[in-house]
Simulated scan of single mutants.
Amino acid sequence: MTPRRTRTRTRTRIRPAAASALAAALASALLAGCGAGADSAPPATGASAASTVRRSHNAQDVTFAREMIPHHRQALAMAALASSRAKSPQVKSLAARIEKAQKPEIDTMSGWLGGWGERVPDDSATGMEGMPGMDHSASPMPGMMSDAAMGELRNLTGDAFDGAFLKMMIGHHEGAVAMAKTERAKGAYGPARTMAASVITAQSAEITEMNALLRT
């Protein structure tokens, strides 16, 4: 009888000890799991790594910003003429929308260049005056108007202005779309590529709108 009672008491003592050990192991595992989630992250792999790389910028992104800023500035200069020279309410409305869309984009791209340690193009009507050695009549940026063409537009009013404005802005927009497509194909900086996609969508739609106005 004595040995049997001894075995019973031994089993009784083991059970609480085993439970305590199990509880401690579970607590340790939970703490380890929490620590991994709060203080550390697994190394980026696959799509995550690619996303990290895409947040950096390359030479094409710099070119896109430095060329699109003066390109946008010239569009703003053209649009600003419409308020006092255009006859068509549709042309005036289009010009106002161009100003509203492109001014914030200039500010955004200027911020990118500053953050990258790159020079922001001088603030001028066409943006070309601040480019050393630049021939104002032969811009490397597609769709840019020459100084002579801008001068002619300033001297027009009414129907004559509307027709010239639409034709010039169509060419200007086509140039911007071409530049944006290059950025989409070769750029690395996510926000710049997103802006390029927006330029392609918005200005392609405006080209369609302007062609329709010319036919009326």
Rank of each mutant, 00 (worst) to 15 (best):
R55W: 08
E67D: 15
A79D: 04
S40Q: 09
Q74E: 12
E67K: 07
T63L: 09
S48T: 13
H57M: 01
S40E: 12
S56H: 14
T52A: 12
A44I: 01
M68H: 12
G35F: 12
R66P: 03
T45N: 04
V53H: 10
M78E: 10
A44W: 11
R54T: 03
D61L: 02
A47D: 15
C34D: 04
S51D: 11
A65V: 08
S51A: 15
R73F: 03
T52M: 05
P42L: 14
A65W: 05
V53Y: 14
R66L: 03
P43F: 08
T45M: 06
C34E: 10
S48A: 15
N58Y: 01
P43H: 06
L76Q: 11
G37P: 00
A79E: 04
G46W: 08
T52N: 04
A36N: 02
N58Q: 00
A44Q: 09
H71L: 03
F64V: 08
P43E: 12
A38P: 01
A80R: 07
V53M: 07
T63I: 05
A44G: 03
A77H: 06
L76A: 13
A80D: 13
G37A: 12
A47V: 08
G46A: 05
P42V: 13
S40A: 15
S48Y: 06
G35H: 06
T52G: 02
P70N: 04
A41F: 15
P43G: 03
R66W: 00
T45P: 02
R54F: 10
V53Q: 14
S56N: 13
G46C: 02
S51G: 10
C34F: 13
A50T: 09
A59K: 07
G35M: 07
D61T: 09
M68G: 07
R73M: 15
A79L: 04
A38I: 15
T52E: 10
S51N: 11
D39T: 13
G35T: 11
A75I: 09
A80P: 01
A49P: 00
P43A: 13
R55S: 12
A49E: 06
A79M: 00
Q60D: 09
A65Q: 01
H57S: 13
M78H: 09
G35W: 12
I69G: 08
H71F: 02
A59G: 10
S40P: 00
C34V: 15
A36S: 12
C34S: 12
M68S: 10
A38F: 14
A59F: 02
A41P: 00
F64D: 04
A36P: 00
S48G: 02
D39C: 13
A65R: 06
A50E: 13
H71C: 05
A80F: 03
F64I: 02
F64K: 07
M78V: 07
S56F: 15
F64P: 05
R73C: 01
A44C: 08
M68A: 06
A79P: 09
T63S: 15
H71W: 04
R73H: 05
N58D: 14
G37E: 10
A80C: 01
L76W: 09
